[in-house]
Each structure stands twice: as C-alpha cells, then as structure tokens.
Amino acid sequence: MDTHTPTLGLEFESGLTLLEVPSPRSTILHRLVGARLTESATEHDPETNATAYWIDARNTAATQVLYDCVSSDRTLESLRVARAFTAYQHHSLVRRVTRQAGPETELIVAPNVASLYHDADLPEWEREGLLAAALETLAELGRVLSCPILVTSADENRADTVAEYAATTLECVRTREGIRLVRSGEEPTDDDGEMGSAIDDTAGYWHGTHWQTTIPYWVDLYGAVAEGQSIVEAYDRGLLEVTA
C-alpha cells in the first residue's frame, strides 16, 4: 500500500466534475484543493497570477479548514475566493471567472453549486434557467481552459441536474478507511485502483509527513457561525433586547 500520497492520487480530468458530497458542510473539497495546490506549488512561482478560483456558496470557504489542509500557508497564496450569498451573485461570479481565468488557471471549484438557486428569494420561473446558464458556463470554461472544474452538491435531486453538465460524477462513499471517491455507479474498490481514491476522514488524516488535527471535524460538527442575522431578524426571533 502506498503510504505517502493517499489523498493525492486522484488526477482530476479537465472539464466539469461533480462531487456528490454527504453534507453541505463537507470538507472534502478543501482537502482536494489543498492537495492540488500543494502539488502545483512546487512547479509554480507564487508571484505569478492566481491559479485557482473558489466560487463560494453557503459560507463553505472556511479559511481555517483550508489552512489546515496544507503544510504551508503559502501554498494557498494563489487561491482566490469570492462568496455568493444570492443565486444572482453566484451567477455573476461564474461570469466573472470567465473574464479573470486564463491559461495559468489550474483549478476552479464551486461548492454547493446549485444550492443558492433554490432559495425563496429567487422566483420559481427563474431558477432552472439561471442555474443551467451557470453550469453551462462552468463546463465550457473547463473545456476551453483544459482545467478541472470541481463542483459539489449534497442534495441528490439537485445533483442530478448538475450531473447533466458534468463530464464526470464522483460519489463519496463511506468505507472503513474513510471516505472514498468513486465514479458514479461503481463499487468502491479496496486497492487504490483507477476507480477512485481514499480520503481518510476518521480522527485525522495523513498529510505527507505528519498528522493534522481535524478542524474539518468540528466544522462539520458545529458548522461555521450560523448564518449572520440582521438585527431585525434577531429582533423578530426574540433574540434582541433594545431600549430606547
């Protein structure tokens, strides 16, 4: 068994890859980004342009988790993050990436890619079209730049929509060794075969030369801070006391 690169074996193909994750708070994507940028950091001059983009939804881009996934903070210097809080913003970010990304871009990720498009503030009639446009743009971007575009979805029904645009769909399957990524519809294999790669998500995970603690574990457990509330909402929920 290969003990040195258990998380890094997976070579993502260029184009859109859907990762079906067990929960919106899954930190698998963080680890994959960390692993990918660790690999490329040796080849790239950190002074050059951004090489990876993270289009965030639902406050997934926990910086502590990302830093925990790399042995040196510098590894993440080429990552650019922007958060969307509405589907409109998400769609705009996807379009913005098409303008900013270039040949040097190695990776684009969009966790919970379909999630915001199901919020109540987006009218029913607009959802499908806006999401389709975002996914199509991402898929096209993957083809044009020949770089992997990783998106995740924790919701099965939405995952089906996303899968229509994805070149590859990977499922996260829980095994005794941890979580294993397998191509959709295939059985998890025990050897580190071509089918998938294991990510140990038990107490900690092996990272090259040392054990990291499991910040992802408590992010899963507690989540990031609850969705920020406006003071008005806080009042509506009886959380606030204000005296004139």
Partner: peptide, 19 residues
C-alpha cells in the same frame, strides 16, 4: 451573511469534544 469560520469559542468547544 459571511462567517465561514466558527468563532474561536466554538473552535475551543470543538477541540474539547475532539479530545
């Protein structure tokens, strides 16, 4: 809106339960 990371207090609770 915002807040991707848990607060430090929550992180402590997380570490405590981890141990």
């Amino acid at each position: 809106m915002g807040r991707t990371n848990p607060t430090y207090r929550d992180a402590l609770r997380g570490l405590e339960s981890e141990w």
